[in-house]
Each structure stands twice: as structure tokens, then as C-alpha cells.
Computed example of a mutant assay.
Amino acid sequence: MRYDLDDLRLFLGIVDEGSITGGARRMHLSLPSASARVRALEHHAGVDLLVRGRRGVRPTPAGTTLARHAREVLAQTARLDSAVASYTRSPAAPLILLGGGSAMHQLVPQALVSFLRAHPDVDVAVSESRTPDTVRLLTDGEADLGVLVGDEARDCGLRTEFLGDDSLVVIGQAGGILAGRSAVTYTEAAEHPMVGLAAGSSLRRWIETHVGPHAPAVRHRTTVAGLNQVVALAAAGVGLAVVPRRAIDPQVSLDVCELQDPWAHRDHLLAWGVKEDDRRATATRALARHLREAALSEPSGRTARREPADRDVAPGARQEPDTLTRP
């Protein structure tokens, strides 16, 4: 049988997320459309690929085999694109890739490693940029690709696609003031000393813009240049921190709480520049594919405190948390 590459990406997303809803979200599809694709995949395969339960799905033995081979096929396809793209353009004209601080932490570097290894004749110029600035540069034809924060990119007029979850969480020292909590508000977190990024960083400015002028004054014990340092300081008990969930190293011992404020729930979008250039098109598509693969390979649900209700359960079903214990 013939396999559609997008169907394979959808199936891998479902397996990684543990739910059809999560896989559909990754591929920017509606739930009915994703379900229909899975049913068609199972029909053509002639075997059940997923075991469906009340709290999500898991692969059958056949589904596990399909997932393993699908990862190999997609990786081979990316290498094929990369090999062809290496003949399409001069190394004197680098691709321009823009993204915010969260994307630059792991997603972009991971994609660059695989892309640049596969494309020895293609260079990429990477810059950190806030979403409004990235939209402007893409619209003006001054960049090829950008990773945007979804809420800031609505009606931007650019071609976009869902890339991954970029929701924010609150982290603190294991066994500290967040112990026993699953979710907090920003106002609660701000009652305690915090650590964060420097004032000029895209994430810091994004948070301050959304909390508004009436937000509580935050006492920052210190500010640093990178998310790795923020996570390390929070793990050491210096203060609480608000970071993207994807920035947390699963090997670091931390208490992690969902951030309940609506603005904390964010998505990453991949956006394309408007400038048409056939000489760059193949290389740009290849870089976009590497970004998708990097997003797909990131472990999902990195916080053990994420509630099962986050999967396939109607919004509003989450239990309200207690108030943080003050020191």
C-alpha cells in the first residue's frame, strides 16, 4: 500500500501525545479530520493500529511497528530533500530564519544541526526576534522562515502552520513552595521571589505585555541571558520562574505547575516569507521540514504534574487549586 507522509506525521504525533486530539493539534487538523485519516490508515493496513481508551490511545503491536518505520521514512525523506536542496543555491545567499527566545532554546538548534549536516552548501542566518518584528520582516521579504507565537500572529496574512506547543509553566525547587500543587496563577507565583530572563528578552517582554499594568510587582533575585540558567537557578531554590514547558530538562529535579492564566497557553507557528524565489524555495522547504521533525521529536508532557484531564476532556473540567503557601 501507499503511505501519505502527512498521515505518517499525524500517526507519530498521536503516538507521542497519547491522544488523537493531541496529534490533530500538532498537524493543525480538526479532530474529525484526524480521526478519519487514522481510520483510513487502519483500513488500508487491514489491522488496528491504536487501542482507544477513555484517557487517550496507545499503539497496538502493529502500530508500534508502523511508528518505528514511519520515523525512519520521514528521516530518509528529510535527507532526500536536503541532498537535492544542496544543488539549488549558492552558499553566498544564506536562508534567513527568525524566532523568539523559546524557539531558540532547543527547537531551532536541533533543526539546524540536522539541516546543516545534510546541506553542506547551504548556510542559515539565525536571529532572535519577537513575533511582531518577525511578521514584519517576513512580510517585507527580508526573511525566509520564522517561528511565531500563535496569539501574536493572528490575521498576519502570512502562510503559517502549527509547529508545537509553547505553553508556559511555573517551576521551583523540588519539595519547595510548589510541592503538592498542579497549577498556579501568575499573581500567586509573583508573591514569591523569582528568577527570569533579562528585560530585553522576547519572553520577558511577552509576559510583561500580557500581565498588564496592574500586575503585582515582581522581585527578581537575578536575571540572566538564557533559559538554561533560569531553570538551573530555579532548581537550586533561588526563586520561582516562568518558562516554556519545552525548556525543562526532564533530567533536572523540579516542581512544575501549570500556569493557569489564559495567556500562558501558547502555540508555536511556522511562518513563511512572502518573497518568491525559485532558487531558494527547495532549500526553504527542506529547512521547514527539519523544523517540523525537530518539533515532532521533542518529548511531550515533560511535566509529570500535567493532569490526565488535559487529554480529550472538555475545557473547564480541571479542579481549582489551593492557594500557595507563603514562606
Results as ranks from 00 to 15, higher is better:
204 R>I: 01
171 I>R: 00
143 A>L: 03
7 D>Y: 09
6 D>E: 15
52 R>Y: 13
166 D>E: 09
81 D>R: 14
176 G>H: 07
47 V>M: 15
179 A>S: 12
117 R>Q: 15
240 L>G: 01
52 R>F: 09
310 D>R: 15
175 G>D: 06
122 V>I: 14
119 H>D: 11
236 A>Y: 07
105 H>D: 15
19 S>N: 04
47 V>F: 09
274 V>Q: 14
313 V>T: 15
118 A>M: 09
213 P>A: 08
44 H>P: 01
118 A>P: 07
223 T>I: 05
279 R>T: 11
217 A>D: 04
288 A>K: 01
140 D>L: 12
212 G>I: 05
295 A>L: 06
323 T>Y: 05
159 R>V: 13
17 E>N: 10
254 L>Y: 04
110 Q>F: 13
49 L>G: 07
189 A>D: 02
226 G>K: 11
209 T>V: 14
315 P>Y: 04
325 T>C: 12
156 C>G: 07
282 T>V: 08
17 E>V: 07
40 A>S: 15
3 Y>S: 01
82 S>M: 10
23 G>M: 03
8 L>D: 00
108 V>W: 01
114 S>E: 03
29 L>R: 03
88 T>W: 08
286 A>G: 14
104 M>C: 11
310 D>I: 10
160 T>W: 11
245 R>I: 13
250 P>V: 02
64 T>W: 08
120 P>K: 03
249 D>W: 11
216 P>C: 00
127 S>M: 15
245 R>Q: 11
141 G>P: 02
235 A>D: 00
205 R>I: 06
128 E>M: 10
266 R>W: 02
264 A>N: 04
82 S>I: 07
162 F>V: 13
296 L>R: 07
17 E>A: 05
262 P>V: 09
145 L>N: 05
164 G>D: 05
177 I>M: 03
75 A>P: 06
184 V>F: 07
15 V>F: 14
208 E>I: 10
155 D>M: 11
147 V>S: 02
153 A>S: 14
294 A>N: 00
51 V>T: 14
269 L>H: 01
210 H>V: 05
231 V>M: 06
202 S>G: 12
114 S>W: 00
160 T>N: 11
325 T>A: 12
297 S>C: 03
227 L>F: 00
191 E>V: 08
150 G>A: 04
275 K>L: 15
243 V>R: 10
239 G>M: 07
64 T>M: 04
76 Q>V: 13
124 V>F: 00
138 L>G: 14
82 S>L: 11
36 A>R: 12
92 A>I: 10
45 A>F: 13
69 H>R: 14
26 R>S: 02
129 S>W: 03
285 R>P: 02
94 P>N: 03
11 F>H: 07
73 V>P: 08
100 G>H: 04
139 T>E: 14
